[in-house]
Nucleic acid binder design. Structure first.
Lengths: 241, 241
DNA sequence: ATTTTGCATTGACCTATATCAAGGCTCGTT
DNA sequence: AACGAGCCTTGATATAGGTCAATGCAAAAT
């Protein structure tokens, strides 16, 4: 039974790890199939979330980090004045929940923006495993480091720029991240509302709307509802700088 | 020699770990003296930095993370337009350089704002050690998690707030962090210029200046050059919300 | 002691963006 | 097919904060 089980796992594993995009955690380095199998055993596949479902809420007990299989999630905090501040959008292949490790409590809300499936990775088990698989520890550090770097990048994007620059950089960033998980041309769907974008970029939602129509009028973008096409990538890149 | 050495270490260690504020990495959990000793062996005490000295620059090879013993460091990136975006201020007892783990290259500049001493902790050695000291791994994760959480907090602070709120929150945050490392009343020294503050908060330096004098006029603060005294903590707190 | 230099303040003006308000699409529902 | 609820767009107006420019101050250098 045990032997059969682990054989089965070796097959099952690859697909699960691949599918759940735990890739970020296991693929980069030289983890062998056996190690990957061990990691795969940890992963808990959760029932799909529908649009508006919460993955977790502020104050929830931390049970593990999450890897997005498909879909999109926004994380946000609520200020004392009741303002919703979006701290990030998370797309397929990305990891979230790392900010909860420290106090074992989620410091923000995570809600699905569309139909979404995630894998839960119990963190303490991952830590345990890290002591036996050295490469895993390093990957874990890298994932967290990347997250820190990304947040700094966001800070740079937000500081001292015009509304137009923010929007443009936001779109370029989204485009780039979506390209990672799917073959894509210059058209894609915005998975979030204008409101969400405004709360992320620190702008009024009207400003977001105006900037988008403005870019459309100048034939840089084409927008139909939430579907967006980049008509002039060079110009868009130029506007970002 | 070996025995004498490790005895010495056991004594030396405590002071070094304590002094270098590697505390964040080792103290929180139940690491025993022996473990602490091992960690201490890693730590490289660097020559003090003078004001304006760089700890590292964008693009530098990553050699390890740094723990601030005393002093202050700002980290910043330079945008394509030449604007300097400050991504953080780091005070005594805090760790920096975590954003370089991923690509083994520092993505930003780190410069001393005053006389500063740091300890360098070679990261790969720390990782090696983590496999044998389970508590260490967890602490490392926590430190990184805290950093991610902090950056999110900064995002929340910057988004959708007035210049006054930003300044007020900035001062409260500084106050709180400085209290951690030194006994302190309501007076302290700003280790950074108005320019730095403005580049951090995404404001014009004139706005920073005006807001500070405004708070002074209303008897919330008292400011002499870079020395600041909080006269009315309750009011300051109220303004932050 | 005096000059220099960098940093900070203050004022006047202007523009980008927020705010307020109204109306128009779109999609899902009955 | 018509209805309703969200979302999005558009316009008019107000204002916070940016920009430009001049001056002041204090510590470092000569």
């Amino acid at each position: 039974m045990a032997t059969a089980g682990s054989n089965l796992k070796l097959i099952h594993v690859k697909s699960a790890c691949e599918a759940c995009r735990v890739r970020e955690l296991c693929l980069p380095t030289s983890l062998n199939d056996q190690d990957v199998s061990l990691i795969d055993d940890l992963v808990i596949r959760r029932a799909p979330l529908n649009k508006g479902d919460f993955l977790y809420r502020t104050g929830d007990k931390f049970r593990g980090i999450y890897a997005l299989q498909y879909g999109a999630i926004k994380t946000y905090g609520v200020t004392r004045q009741g303002r919703e501040q979006v701290t990030g959008f998370h797309l397929a292949g990305e990891v979230l929940g790392l900010d909860a490790i420290d106090e074992e409590i989620h410091p923000c809300n995570a809600v699905a923006l569309e139909k979404t499936e995630v894998c839960q990775i119990p963190f303490h088990k991952l830590e345990q495993l890290s002591t036996t698989i050295p490469g895993l520890l390093h990957n874990l550090s890298k994932v967290m480091s990347r997250e820190i770097k990304h947040e700094e990048h966001v800070l740079m994007m937000l500081g001292g720029t015009t509304a137009e620059q923010r929007i443009v950089r936001f779109i370029l960033n989204l485009k780039q991240r979506m390209s990672k998980s799917e073959v894509m041309g210059y058209s894609f769907k915005l998975c979030m509302s204008r409101q969400d974008i405004s709360n992320y970029l620190g702008l009024a939602l009207e400003t977001v709307s105006r900037q988008l129509t403005n870019l459309q009028d100048r034939d840089v973008l084409e927008i139909h509802n939430r579907y967006i096409t980049i008509l002039n990538p060079e110009e868009l890149q130029k506007l970002a700088d």
